[in-house]
């Protein structure tokens, strides 16, 4: 039996140990906020945090997450009360079609939370594994910057 902590909730996973983490999240736990874009770790749409670090959940077998903490986009805010980061995306045009957004948010969330440098260059480097075809990234970078600044106030 595989034990996971997903968004703070302890879960016993009884399915196949080599099931992809993305499928376990989407199919077994109904957490469909995590998206699949390429299935080979290139686009980052399926990014979740594993013990706080961004990973491509399409490349991780669920057994690799045994005993570890997983955070998905559902752990951030809700529509009625967005997190600072989500509110930054809404205000600055960080989401268009939205399909890359959950993965983008999770990578950005880890970056902002890391308390390291948070400027244009560091954000672009942090997000370089998350593809977006709509925005050209500038408004995403602005969104993260706004959230990071807001956090210090």
């Amino acid at each position: 039996m595989i034990k996971l902590t997903v968004n703070g909730k302890k879960i016993s996973f009884k399915g196949a140990p080599f099931k992809r983490l993305i499928d376990a999240l989407r199919e077994d736990l109904a957490l469909t906020g995590t998206k699949e874009g390429c299935g080979e770790g290139e686009c980052g749409a399926c990014t979740v945090l594993l013990d706080g670090e961004p990973v491509n959940s399409c490349l991780i077998p669920v057994c690799q997450a045994d005993g570890r903490k997983i955070e998905t986009v559902e752990s951030l805010g809700v529509p009625e009360k967005l997190s600072k980061l989500q509110a930054g995306f809404l205000a600055c045009g960080g989401a268009q079609c939205g399909i890359c957004t959950p993965g983008m948010l999770m990578t950005a969330h880890a970056h902002v939370r890391s308390k390291g440098k948070c400027d244009d260059k560091s954000i672009r480097t942090a997000l370089s594994g998350n593809l977006c075809r709509c925005t050209g990234y500038q408004d995403i970078v602005k969104s993260v910057l706004k959230a990071a600044k807001g956090g210090k106030k």
């Binding site: 957490l31 998905t72 559902e74 995306f89 989401a95």
Partner: peptide, 21 residues
């Protein structure tokens, strides 16, 4: 004006086809 579809997309609640049960 903030985009209408923003809050649902930003919280993972927007349902794309493969998300619909």
């Amino acid at each position: 004006e903030p985009r209408r579809d923003g809050p649902a997309k930003l919280t993972g609640r927007a349902l794309y086809l493969d998300d619909i049960n």
